[in-house]
Structure formats: structure tokens, C-alpha cells
Amino acid sequence: MKPAGYSASQWLIGVILTIAIICSILAIVLPVFLKEKKTGSGLQSDIERLRRTDPLLIRYDELKPSIKTDLKWARNIAVSSDDRVIVTGGRAMRVYDSAGQKLALEIETEQEISAIAVADDGSLYLGVGDHIKMFDSSGRLLNRWESVGPKAVLTSIGISNDDVFVADAGNRTIHRYNISGEKRASFGDFIIPSFYFDLAISADGLLYAANTGEHRIETYDLDGNLISWWGVFSNEDPKGFCGCCNPVNFALLPNEEGFITCEKGIARVKIYDKEGNFEGFVAGAEQFKQYDSIYGIPEDRYNPVGLDVAVDSKGRVMVLDPATAEVRIFQRKTDDL
């Protein structure tokens, strides 16, 4: 039936034009759709490949038992100069000796603890909300610093003599303070897509920061001048960092021998030498299946917080598993030393 007021020829021309327009749209959209479908398949294949770890690249053995905390979930880990293991989760901080026995020292804060560092004298620096709290080695509050600002998300703290450096993911910068909490400077314009922004300071006075959006670790002097960087993005080569923003956390090996890095999304822990050359895995993705929803873990057990890591004086790698609130301990294989 043709619309009223139109001749048969006009109606026919309209139909033909409509069909031509539909065909043109399909000619443009269909190849794009098929390409996206193919790309999705390729991405899935990349993920499956990254999830499989070559056993020959595993450089560490996991030691048992792990350190079981009494926290519901965990976020941060630090190791003191005498190898005490300090863990935070929510508003709580717990301390364990090197054998995993819980010690009496506990701290509870009014807000979630988002960062932690321990000085050589045992004093503790906690990122709590928009500010830093400083405690002595017995857990007595010494100082509450001024607010960093309303946008602040404090994610990491590093100590070097009289300087304290604080990574702020909310403002995508690093703040420098003295030990009294007086701000000296801020530096950096980092690309931080999510609230993971780690830093560490070496014994020789270099500051390392994870610029996660660039998939690399950068080296600075203590005045904030960029010296060098290493790291690449790759969803194929295990030498690179995958996903949107990795590595989420890292630690320095003793004597500046290299780096231990953690990634989220596909959770894995890797080792690089001091120049940033990939050496292998501490632990592969198979050992952290609870971090990948593709394994069918119920949503209420899936915790998006990335792994955190610290290294003790013996070179043992302490990996904090937030989903299980335990510290998993890894030691270099004897035939790999």
C-alpha cells in the first residue's frame, strides 16, 4: 500500500532510495562489527596467553606456611629493618615477626589506612584519609600532619633521612615533607588512571615512582628531577606491563639489585634487574586466580585491590594477597642464584 498523496512512481523511487541508504549503512557498519568481534577474540586469546606462565621463567619458590592475618581484607605491607612484617587493612594495622607470629603492637585509625612506611628507628608513617599520621615504634601517636588537600588520595610513603615523600594519586603528584610534616615541595605530572601510585627510595638516595598510565618505573633525584625510566606496555610479551595501568606496586631488592613488580587485572609478580631488564616471575597468574573474574569466582569474593609487595633483609619477597588477607612468602630458587 502506497502512502496517500504520492504517485506510484514517487513511491517506488522512495522505496529504492530507502533500500539504498540501508545497504550503504550496512556496508559501513558490518565490516566494523566483524572487525571488533575478531579483535575481541584476539584480546581474549592474549589474555589466555598472559595467564599461562612458562615454568622455566619462575625464579622463586613459595614458602609455607603463609602469614595469616586476622584482617577481613588487606591493602598495604611494609617490612622493617629488623624484618617485622607490617600489614594494614581497613582502619587497622597489625605487626608480625619474621616467623609470622603476631606481635602485640596494633593501631586503629578513624579512617582507612591507604599507605604505610616504617623508618629505620621503627617509627611508623600512615596515610589516613587526606593526611599523614606519625607513630613511634610502640604505636604512640607523635604527630598528625596537615591535610594534603580535598582531592588527595595518599597511596605510598617513602623515607630518606629527614625527608618523607608521599605519592598522591588524587593529585597525580609526589609531595616532599620533612619529618616534622612541613611541606617542602611537590613534583611530577604523572598519568595515574586508577588509585595505584607507588614509590620507593633506595639507599643511595634515588626515588623510584610507578607511572602506571605510562606502564613504567621512573627514577628521580630527591629534588624531583627525572633521571631515567624503564618499562613498556604489552598484552603479549611478559616482559611488558599489561592492562590500563601497571605496575600497581613494586619493591626494591636488597643492595639495589633490582625490582619486584605487581600487576592487577591479570595478577602476577615479576622480577627485573636494576636496569629494568626482565628476569622472570616470582609468581604467575595461576597462583592468584581469585583476581580474574574469568575463573568464575563469585563477585562477593572478588577484590579489585592489587597485590602489594615488600622485601625483607634476606631477599625474601612478601606478597600481600588482599583477597585472602595473607602474606605469601617467596624465596629465590637455589639453582637460580
Results as ranks from 00 to 15, higher is better:
L124T: 02
S98M: 06
V29T: 04
N246I: 00
Q101R: 11
Y291S: 04
C245R: 01
Q290C: 10
T261P: 03
V305I: 10
Q290R: 14
A169P: 12
S41V: 06
A285F: 04
F33K: 12
E214N: 10
K270S: 09
G129H: 05
H131P: 03
P304V: 00
G258H: 02
D223K: 13
S194Q: 13
E257N: 11
N255A: 14
R176E: 09
L103K: 10
A200R: 13
A251I: 01
Y196A: 05
A119L: 00
R144P: 04
Y220T: 00
K133L: 11
N171R: 12
N178Y: 10
K333G: 05
F33W: 14
L105K: 09
W73N: 13
I113S: 05
N235P: 06
F330N: 02
F278T: 03
N235V: 00
A210I: 00
K35S: 13
G231Y: 02
F233K: 11
G122L: 04
G265Q: 06
L126S: 01
F135G: 08
Q10S: 13
Y196S: 08
I22M: 12
P55M: 07
S114A: 07
A283K: 06
R332M: 07
S45P: 01
T18K: 08
G181C: 08
G139S: 05
